[in-house]
Amino acid sequence: MVETPLSQKLGYWLLYICIACGIVVIQLLPLQLSPIRLFSELRLGFPLSGQSLPSLTASIRSWLTPDILLAITCAWIMRRPDYVPVILVGVIFLLADLLLQRPPGLYAVIVILGTEFLRTRAFELRNGFFIAEYLTVAAVIYMIGLLYFFACSITMIVRPDFLLLFIQSMTTVALYPLVTFVSRAVFGIYHIGPGGGDEARGRL
């Protein structure tokens, strides 16, 4: 049994925090000031005649609205559950809720429910094909979106637009393979081998 040394785990926790903060800060950059173009056009039924010429980057940015933080969290949990402890997920998503103007705590609770589900499946899915993992994660991401929508309805908050949520979940799912590839290639997040320790399976 190979125990992951605590210092290495601490390093990955810090890395996760840094990546999360980076994603939130990039989302906060004042680049996307007008509403999502795809959404507006679907809503209006006609293309918006731009008095200002939309550039390519602007239009890509305004079409894709993935929740990259969620994708990264799922990808890491499927590979190394011990690198993303549940408290860390809670704190990061609570901070994101506060900074991104969501009802504080609600999205964090739903994300934790989803990722805990993934955590219990991570061990079984790790020897299968990627497609099995992908389908599971996709289902969880869609469920998170749905749950968030219903939770907002039940607690009588102004609920997020369903179409917009759907676009977001879809783009998150579409980006998931890329996110797993980057976490493997850049950050070295691999599946643990069959001899991996109990701890590495995220028992604590």
Binding site: L28, L33, P35, L100
Partner: peptide, 10 residues
């Protein structure tokens, strides 16, 4: 303007 809302919902 320093930052935007960071999410498409707000």
């Amino acid at each position: 303007v320093m930052a935007d809302s960071g999410s498409p919902f707000r």
